[in-house]
Nucleic acid binder design. Structure first.
Lengths: 374, 374
DNA sequence: TTGAAAGCGCTAACAC
DNA sequence: GTGTTAGCGCTTTCAA
């Protein structure tokens, strides 16, 4: 144990092989019911002896249901009984089995969280809020990542539902029809977050991406910029970024202006794509004096491009992002952007998903940060 | 439904209240067994009718175990039977109950992941790797966040174990004694990640933080720097950052040099703390010509300080970080740092945790990125 | 205040 | 190839 192996010693085989092997071993055991049961235990070295509630009950000299009541501090029991039980639990190192508990009570303490990505910090931010609230209430979050793919999301939702979660928190309002149907029929409470521009299933918690885009445009217009460009990532996948762009364009239109050029990258947002995207946009269209980015990661990339190429910000070029990331806040020039309530969305969503309240939409709003880049 | 409510309509009460309320309603129902059962269903609007395996079996006109076999593509069944079952599943919208399945088979498809934080992108990076591997193998990850607090970690581990996970992935090698004992007695496979400098419980997957610190120092020394400073976050909480600092100091010592000054922030790492920390360090000790940061977030903050104050990097001051974050890679001057294998750690850890292999330590190594700041 | 009994919905062994 | 049977480890009822 703990003998340092090197990377080379790692087989890069199929992840399932081990499970398959187990199963194979497994099915070799024959004999009487009892013998078979016993073999099962020994067939996997690592199969825990698993102290059960009943073992605790025996040790404490009480009934199983009494132990159950004591452990959940529910119903009544004498102090003496409680002490005996607690002592037995300690002695045996008993850890309750939530799987059995959940099955018996039909009330799970698992909440599913389905997000498109873990690469963009906004989703971990959401998770932080969710986790904080859930943890305080004794719930655990099971996470699923969809990579912005609706069919993967559908699969994810289906397998999440198989765990009979207490609730489901999902980023976005757009899902496949089947996903929507499963969700509705499941009887599980659903909270859709990050977007309120559309029709939700149950609870909807977030902000209007359309309004974010609109507000961004109005701000830039009010600052006197007139030649607008856009640098964004794949808006066919990230529908919310697409809605922001729509809002942005609509507001420009309303002001009698328009987007002069846009650079759309077919990949996820990143600092790199933002930097390169801006470079391409400017090469193509040097007259642009203000650029709207699909988010702060992209915008920071753009800012880096300006720093590296001595482009005066905001005099020669204004930059505007979305999200209000920490890194953007402490740049030499704080990025002009809109702060979105990711953590609060997580907290709010987690709280609602555990309630019995009627469905509703909660607009958490957003905040414009003037910054120094526009 | 979907009537836009405003934020104000949200009570900011205790998260448990709803659950408590449910329970209260719950216990009010009395009567015969059947009546009670029925009340249960109606007491919570949202209690699903829950189609069962048996319902599918009836609909398909076959036995329950046959349905089970078909659904898990295990054992044998005729094509005709399969078609009947599949049809019934479709018709009824059946979603298997993993809770029951897990209890019956005593083989869970849940893997616990215990990390100190979600604020620092390195942990989501780990999660990405874990999730990718687990997802491909049909497993789900349950996450727990400890906020770098050993006693919270202990609690987290305990409640994770209650779900009888297929395995547990934990960041770091340092745990409370009770946590370690629980882990060992649980019979669950454990993978400790992010650190190999110490004694592990079962699998250990990561890199040597001591070596990272040492390598960083050697690099800076080889570049000709002689007056070293350190800007870091709370190393009493983040033990791995502490180990890097130790390695750094040891290597300086070995070169006949030493750290001239250090700025330790008592908070989590952030761009802000890095920026302010460097400002304080330089104010106190202007002679320093190279600064080692506890990680890239801090280092980027330091870099921003230099940009904002026209401090020539690396001529006047060299900067060195740790992790190799994307944002650092595309800064005007790419940050000099060490890339750590977060994603790979996640993949490797997840793969190992599902195996039957004997315990071992896997050193995934790290990579020095020369960058342009040192 | 307590224990016996009946499930929760599924899997696995085994006989047919 | 398929159905019957016996649990998995709990919670909840109900009678004592």
């Amino acid at each position: 144990m703990n003998v340092p192996d090197l990377v080379g010693s790692l087989a890069c085989g199929d992840n399932r092989s081990a499970a398959a092997l187990n199963l194979a071993n497994w099915r070799r055991f024959e004999g009487t019911n009892l013998a078979a049961r016993r073999s099962r235990k020994s067939s996997r070295k690592r199969d825990k002896p698993s102290v059960t509630l009943e073992a605790v009950a025996r040790k404490a000299g009480v009934g199983a249901s009494t132990v159950s009541r004591v452990l959940r501090k529910q119903g009544s029991f004498s102090p003496r009984t409680r002490d005996k039980v607690v002592a037995a639990v300690e002695k045996l190192g008993y850890v309750p089995n939530n799987i059995a508990g959940t099955l018996a009570s039909t009330r799970s303490q698992l909440v599913g969280v389905v997000i498109p990505s873990l690469t963009n910090i906004v989703f971990p931010d959401l998770l932080r809020g969710v986790h904080k609230t859930l943890d305080a209430a004794g719930y655990k979050s099971v996470i699923g990542v969809t990579e912005y793919d609706p069919s993967q999301e559908e699969l994810m939702i289906e397998s999440m539902l198989a765990w009979r979660p207490a609730g489901l928190i999902i980023a976005g309002l757009e899902h496949t029809n089947r996903a929507r149907t499963m969700l509705k029929n499941s009887g599980v409470r659903v909270v859709e977050v990050f977007d309120i521009d559309g029709k939700g299933i149950d609870f909807v918690v977030g902000f209007s991406n359309l309004a974010v885009g609109r507000t961004s445009a109005q701000f830039l217009v009010s600052r006197g910029y007139r030649h607008f460009g856009y640098v964004g990532h794949n808006i066919e996948m990230d529908l919310r970024a697409g809605k922001r762009l729509s809002g942005f364009k609509l507001a420009l239109q309303a002001a009698g202006l328009s987007l002069q050029d846009q650079e759309l990258v077919a990949r996820p947002s990143s600092v790199e794509e933002g930097r390169n995207g801006l470079a391409r946009l400017l090469a193509r269209n040097p007259a642009i004096d203000a650029v709207y980015f699909s988010n702060d990661d992209m915008a920071i990339g753009g800012y880096f491009h300006c720093l590296a190429n001595a482009i005066a910000v905001p005099d020669r070029l204004a930059l505007f992002g979305c999200n209000g990331l920490e890194v953007a806040r402490f740049a030499p020039q704080p990025l002009s952007t809109i702060r979105t309530p990711r953590f609060l969305m997580g907290e709010t969503g987690a709280r609602l998903v555990l309630t019995d309240e009627p469905s509703k939409v909660v607009d958490l709003g957003f905040e414009l940060i003037e910054g120094a880049t526009a």
